[in-house]
Amino acid sequence: MTRLPIPALSLTLALAACATAPTPVARTGAARAPMPYTSVGLERVLGQSAAGLTQLFGDPDADVREGSARKLQFGSNICILDAYLYPSGNTEPKVTYLDAREPDGSAIDRASCVAALTRRKEAR
């Protein structure tokens, strides 16, 4: 049997400690495809001001401002809707983009979320 000098043995052991087995990834179900971006069903929301959104959904659950941009968040037990408002020239900020998700973060159709939030205000 060949004996390795102590420095070589130490180096071999140090390098072996760096090697790791790949970590298995747990699969919780089939991967979902991203929701297609369409404005169908969003006509009541796109282009609205903050006042228009409040009239449609009630008071926002969050109101975040960054510079001239603004994000209003509306939520229910069905979904969470983020409405992004940006000014155009000297006009007040209007909704130019919407994002929707289920409370657990899963994707949901934005128009379905708008409909659910509209019903939320009617139930109050």
Rank of each mutant, 00 (worst) to 15 (best):
L42F: 05
L42A: 06
L42E: 03
L42Y: 06
E43W: 04
E43P: 02
E43T: 04
R44F: 01
V45N: 11
V45I: 07
L46K: 07
L46T: 01
G47W: 13
G47Y: 12
Q48K: 13
Q48C: 13
Q48H: 00
Q48G: 03
Q48I: 00
S49Y: 03
S49V: 05
S49L: 05
S49P: 00
S49K: 13
S49I: 09
S49T: 15
A51T: 14
A51R: 14
G52T: 09
G52Q: 02
G52S: 13
L53V: 10
L53R: 06
T54I: 09
T54L: 06
T54Y: 01
Q55F: 02
L56R: 11
L56T: 11
F57V: 05
F57Y: 11
G58A: 15
G58D: 05
D59F: 06
D59L: 03
D63G: 00
D63V: 04
V64N: 12
V64D: 10
V64G: 08
R65C: 04
E66W: 05
G67Q: 11
S68C: 04
S68D: 15
A69V: 06
A69T: 11
A69Q: 07
K71L: 06
L72S: 08
L72F: 14
L72C: 02
Q73C: 10
F74Y: 15
F74T: 03
G75Q: 06
I78M: 08
C79R: 04
C79Q: 13
I80D: 00
I80A: 05
L81H: 02
L81T: 00
D82I: 08
A83S: 14
A83D: 08
Y84D: 05
Y84T: 00
Y84H: 14
Y86R: 09
Y86N: 00
P87T: 01
P87L: 08
S88W: 15
S88T: 09
S88E: 04
G89T: 09
N90F: 14
T91V: 11
P93D: 00
K94C: 02
K94Y: 01
K94G: 02
V95C: 01
V95S: 05
Y97A: 12
L98S: 03
L98P: 09
D99N: 06
A100V: 14
R101K: 12
R101G: 04
R101A: 14
E102K: 05
E102I: 01
P103I: 08
D104F: 08
D104I: 10
D104M: 09
G105I: 05
G105A: 13
S106T: 12
S106W: 14
S106Y: 12
S106G: 14
D109V: 01
